[in-house]
């Protein structure tokens, strides 16, 4: 009864929504959105295909066992043991994380737990500006300031190019990443957990280090892995400040070549396309890709495995 009255009141002629045109619009929108999403997927697939295709061609000439196990990298002499390049990359990464993990984590704890609200509001964006400094600037800073500083003070024997300065400055570069991402994780720990600790007579320090940080652990690990990924893939700093000497087992004060730096050297040099030396950069690139992929998967697994549901 009531429904009929309602229907009688609204006149047919007043309503003009064209449902066919609307459906067409919906379809177009959906198509555009899907297409955008697929652009990045197809690009990634394309890159991986090209990378592995060229890599495969390289491994027709050089045995993969030699590539992965021998320790001399001298393409001109036909020695293709990738380990010296991996060593350079890992050395710089290790030094970088040794800087960025403690500084970044302590910064995150300070920002989230101790900093007054107003300070936090401008300190966090300021920190993120540090991430916006071009890496080429960091590289020259390491080469022209950090290395001479070490030579004039504690390490007179340090090389002009060395892993120590490059690694340290790379650590500074990834501090914002580590600090910002772990701060998000720490800040997201609910207040109720902190109050639970305070209510037992815990001090602020005990609450922050023993309750809040463990609760945010999965996010912190993700932050550190993200930092490591950035350090492994970082190119300009190691190219400028660490040198181009493949060096297996060398000390951090010596020059060594990172995987990315080798690729830059070959691409920027006179090496003819199609030569085995040129193809070797794809093999090195694949190795680099697999390293960061493994890290990202580890991070993904860790976050899912250890995330706390509040």
């Amino acid at each position: 009864m009531a429904v009929e009255t309602q229907g009688a009141r609204s006149r047919e002629g007043d309503w003009h929504r064209n449902s066919r045109a609307r459906q067409a619009r919906e379809r177009i929108i959906k198509f555009l959105l899907t297409a955008c999403a697929y652009v990045s997927i197809f690009t990634t697939i394309g890159i991986v295909v090209v990378l592995f295709e060229e890599t495969l061609r390289f491994f027709l000439d050089v045995s993969i066992v030699e590539f992965l196990t021998t320790t001399r990298w001298a393409p001109q002499q036909g020695d293709f043991g990738v380990l010296p390049l991996v060593y350079g990359t890992l050395m710089a990464t290790f030094i970088a994380i040794a800087v960025a993990l403690p500084v970044g984590l302590l910064t995150a704890i300070y920002l989230s737990e101790y900093a007054p609200k107003r300070l936090r509001r401008w300190l966090k964006p300021a920190l993120e500006i540090l991430a916006g400094v071009p890496t080429v600037v960091y590289g020259y800073f390491a080469l022209t300031f950090i290395t001479p500083f070490f030579r004039d003070s504690v390490l007179p024997g340090i090389g002009s190019f060395n892993a120590l300065a490059a690694g340290l400055i790379m650590g500074v570069m990834i501090i914002p990443t580590v600090a910002s991402v772990s701060e998000d994780a720490i800040y997201a720990v609910p207040r109720s957990l902190r109050e639970g600790a305070y209510a037992l007579g815990a001090t602020k320090r005990e609450t922050a280090t023993k309750i809040v940080v463990p609760a945010a652990l999965s996010g912190i690990v993700a932050a550190v892995i993200l930092g490591i990924s950035r350090a492994i893939g970082e190119t300009m700093i190691v190219t400028i400040a660490m040198g181009s000497q493949p060096n297996f087992g060398g000390s951090p004060t010596e020059s060594m070549q990172a995987m990315t730096a080798y690729i830059v050297q070959v691409v920027g040099g006179e090496t003819p396309r199609g030569s085995i030396t040129f193809e070797s950069i794809f093999a090195v690139g694949s190795a680099l890709f697999l390293m960061t992929l493994a890290l990202n998967l580890a991070s993904y697994w860790f976050v899912r495995r250890f995330r706390e549901i509040y």
Partner: peptide
């Protein structure tokens, strides 16, 4: 103190 919502530590 015991709170409204259970808040066990991780």
């Amino acid at each position: 103190m015991v709170f409204q919502k259970p808040n066990p530590f991780s």
